[in-house]
Amino acid sequence: MKEQFSARMLRVHFGEDDRWQGKPLHEAILAKCKELGIAEAIVFRGIEGYGSATRIRHASYWRLSKDAPIQMTIIDTEERIAMLLPHLDAMVEEGLVATSTVEVIRYVRTPATAQT
């Protein structure tokens, strides 16, 4: 099954060490997205970068540094994203949110194909 619609894409940048109520921030945001029924959310760990705190974030296997840069890409309709934004305001203490308007094609497994 295929559906096509216009949507918003958020890219949220912060650090892997950032936490929300004792949980890693990216896990907390992902859980919130799931709770709100957001269509797509994915977390990427960068290998190097710097952000609003201007410290160089660096993921190193040798030093096991945990403060790697994190980028979350979140995609859904304008309305759903609008529902998420107040939560992001509360949760992201230090970071960057970039938004863009995108065109989306969504493929969903129909029950018939899911069984095969």
Binding site: H26, E27, L30, C33, K34, A39, E40, A41, I42, V43, F44, R45, R106, Y107, V108, R109
Partner: peptide, 14 residues
């Protein structure tokens, strides 16, 4: 190609 460390999508699984 990027591999996410965490995520869910059309399939709904984390």
């Amino acid at each position: 190609v990027y591999r996410g460390i965490l995520g869910y999508g059309a399939h709904g699984r984390i």
